[in-house]
Design a protein around this nucleic acid. Structure first.
Lengths: 349, 349
DNA sequence: TTGTAGGCGTTATCAA
DNA sequence: TTGATAACGCCTACAA
C-alpha cells in the first residue's frame, strides 16, 4: 500500500496516452475533447480509481467550492432545521459545507472563526447566529470588505448587509390576532431574553396587535423568560399574580409554552377554557402536548435554502467583477397552526 | 479593491525583507527563527492582513486539516447533540469540519458522499449514520482501504472496523430492570423500526432482562413503532387490546413515549399508578411531559468528542506509517433518569 | 482537438 | 539562522 505511485491527473494522462491538460478538459468540460480520447480517459480514471484533488483545484481556480456556515444553538430545533436547508441546497449547487459552531451566540471568538474560514478560502459565509446583545459589534463595512461574501440569518436589517430572516414580528401578530379573534382580551406575553432580537420582534408584534385592537399592552402583562420550560412555568405564576383575570398568553417559544401548560395544570386553570396558550416554533412535540399546542411555524428549511441561493448570486456577481449592488433583505412569512390550546370550542377531549 | 496585489506569503516576505521560507518557519514554528526577524515578519503580517492559504498548505502537506462528518437525522435530538460534541472536539484539535447530511439513513448516494470527501482530502471521516437495513453493504475491507481513516458511530461491532457507540442494550436493561424493581410484571415494549440496529438492541436488552427475571418476553408484548409520537399512541392501543392487564411499557424513544402518555390519558389509565412508562433519549422536554417522563440519558456529546479523539489517533498512526492495529470498539454507558412516569409512590401532583 | 509551459501559495530540502 | 529551488496536483494560456 505504500510504494503505489499516487494517482494524479498526470498518471491518468500517462495511462490514457494524452496530456494532463486534456484529462483536465475531459473532467471539467471547459474545452471540447474528442469522444474517443474521452472514453480512454474515463477508462483510465476508472482503472486507476482516480479522485481529483480539490485542494489543488481550489488553489488554481481561486475558489474552493466550499461555504462556511456558522451556527449557534444547534441543540435547538430551529437552527438544526435551518442547517438542514442550507446543507440540502449547498449540496445541490455543488458546494461543500465547512461547519463552525458557536457554543453561545455571544461568543467572543468571532474573529478566530472568521479567520479560519478566510484561510480556508470559503467562497462565501452564512452567519446563522442569533443576534444577541452586542454580538454584531464586529460587523462594520470595513470588516465586511476583507471577508468573502457573507449573508446573515436571523437579525434586523441594516444597510449594506445581506439579511434573510423569518418574520418574527408577523408571527407574533398572527398569534395575538388569533387570540383576539377567539375573544380573549387579557393577553399576556412571555418573551425570550430581551437581549435577543427575535424576542424583541415578537414582543413588538404582540404589542402592535393589541394597540391596533384598542387594547393597552400593559407592562404588567409581560414577563421575560429564558427560552426554557422552567422559565415559562415561573412566568405564568408571575403573570397570574399580577393579572388574575388573564385569559390568554402568547409564549415566545414552545419550550416555555410547555412550562406554561404545566403551571396551568398545577393551578387547575383549564386550557383553553380558562386560559388560551399559543407558542412559537411548532416543534414536533407540540401536537402531543396536553392539550395540543397552537403555535407558529416558520419556514426554516426554506430559510436555509434561500440563503444559499442568494449567497451564490452574490458570489457569482463578485466573481464576475461586478458591483455588489443592493444586498438582499428578505423576510419569510410564518404560519399559524391552530390546535386545541387556543381553540374556543375545544374541550380537553 | 481590484489592483491590490494578492497578499501571499511572498508579499509578507518581501515586506519583512526575508525569504518566503523564513516566513513559513515563523508561522509554523517548525524551524527556529531569530526573534528580530520574527518580529519583523509578524508586523508585516499585521500590516498586510495576511491570511495563510490553507488550500496551498494542505496541498503540499498532504493533509487538509479537515474531517468529514456524515450525519443522518439531524432534525432529531440525538444526532445534533452528537454533532455538537464532534465539532467541539474537532475545533479543539485544530480540525475544520466538512459536513454532509444524508436525508435518510438508507440513502443511496453513499458513494457520492465518500467521493467528495475523498476529493477534498479530508484527513478522516466520522460516519454518524444510523445502521438501518442494508445501509452498511458498501462497507468492505477493500472499500475501507481506499478511504481515509474512518470511524463509525451507532452500529454493531464488526471486525476491522472502528466503532464507537452508546450502549443501547444496556440502556434497555436499565429501563426494564427499573420497571421490575418498581414491582411491574407485565412490561410491554414499543420498539423503533426493527430494521434499525438501535431498535433491535433495545429490544434485546428488554428481552434479556425479562428472561433474567424469569418472565417470558411474550411476543404479544411487543409492538413496532416508527420513532414518532403517533406510532407510540397507536402502539399503546394495540398493546392494551392484546394485554389488558399491562402494567408498564418501555418505549424505545421519548417521542413515541409522548404518544403513549397521550393514549393513556385518553383511555383514563393513570400514569404511573395503572401504567408505568419509560422512554429513551431524555430529550429536553421529557421533564415537562405529563407526568414527567422517566428516560435513558445517553452521553451523546461525549460520544462525539471521543469519536474525534479516537479518529485522530488513527490518523496519526497512519501518518506515521505505522500499522493500523486493532480498531477501537467502544461503548458508552447510558444512565437512567427516574421521573414520575414510573415512580411507585408518585401521584399525579 | 491536443500538447507544453507556467503559475496558484505553501512547505521541504539543500546550501550557505 | 536564512535563502534558493523544487515540488504538491491542477488549470489555462498559447502554440501546434
Amino acid at each position: 500500500m505504500a510504494n503505489q505511485k499516487r494517482v494524479t491527473i498526470v498518471e491518468v494522462a500517462r495511462r490514457a496516452r494524452v496530456s494532463a491538460g486534456t484529462v483536465s478538459n475531459a473532467l471539467t468540460g471547459k474545452r471540447p475533447v474528442s469522444p474517443a480520447t474521452r472514453a480512454r480517459i474515463l477508462r483510465a480514471i476508472e482503472e486507476l480509481g482516480y479522485q481529483p484533488n480539490l485542494l489543488a483545484r481550489g488553489l488554481v481556480n481561486r475558489r474552493s467550492g466550499t461555504l462556511g456556515v456558522v451556527v449557534s444553538g444547534l441543540e435547538y430545533y430551529g437552527p438544526s432545521r435551518t442547517l438542514v436547508g442550507i446543507e440540502r441546497e449547498a449540496n445541490q449547487l455543488g458546494y461543500s459545507l465547512i461547519l463552525d459552531l458557536l457554543h453561545t451566540p455571544e461568543a467572543d471568538n468571532v474573529e478566530q472563526v472568521l479567520g479560519i474560514l478566510t484561510s480556508r478560502r470559503v467562497d462565501g459565509i452564512i452567519w446563522a447566529v442569533h443576534e444577541v446583545g452586542e454580538n454584531r459589534a464586529w460587523l462594520s463595512e470595513e470588516r465586511l470588505h476583507r471577508l468573502p461574501p457573507i449573508i446573515f440569518l436571523t437579525m434586523g436589517f441594516r444597510p449594506g448587509v445581506a439579511v434573510i430572516t423569518a418574520d418574527n414580528r408577523q408571527g407574533a401578530c398572527l398569534a395575538t390576532r388569533h387570540l383576539l379573534d377567539e375573544g380573549r382580551r387579557r393577553i399576556g406575553l412571555i418573551t425570550g431574553p430581551l437581549s435577543w432580537w427575535e424576542a424583541r420582534e415578537r414582543q413588538a408584534g404582540w404589542q402592535a396587535t393589541l394597540e391596533e385592537a384598542g387594547l393597552s399592552p400593559d407592562p404588567a402583562l409581560v414577563v421575560e423568560g429564558d427560552w426554557n420550560a422552567p422559565s415559562g412555568e415561573a412566568g405564568l405564576y408571575r403573570l397570574l399574580e399580577r393579572v388574575p383575570d388573564l385569559d390568554a398568553v402568547f409564549v415566545s417559544n414552545d419550550q416555555m409554552a410547555l412550562g406554561v401548560l404545566r403551571a396551568a395544570h398545577l393551578l387547575g386553570r383549564r386550557v383553553p377554557e380558562d386560559l388560551a396558550v399559543v407558542g412559537y416554533d411548532n416543534i414536533p412535540q407540540a401536537p402531543y402536548f396536553w392539550p395540543p399546542l397552537t403555535s407558529i411555524r416558520q419556514q426554516l428549511i426554506r430559510l436555509g435554502s434561500v440563503a444559499v441561493r442568494e449567497l451564490q448570486k452574490i458570489i457569482e456577481r463578485r466573481q464576475a467583477g461586478q458591483e455588489p449592488g443592493e444586498p438582499v433583505q428578505m423576510t419569510l412569512a410564518p404560519e399559524l397552526i391552530i390546535r386545541e390550546s387556543s381553540r374556543a370550542g375545544a374541550g380537553s377531549g
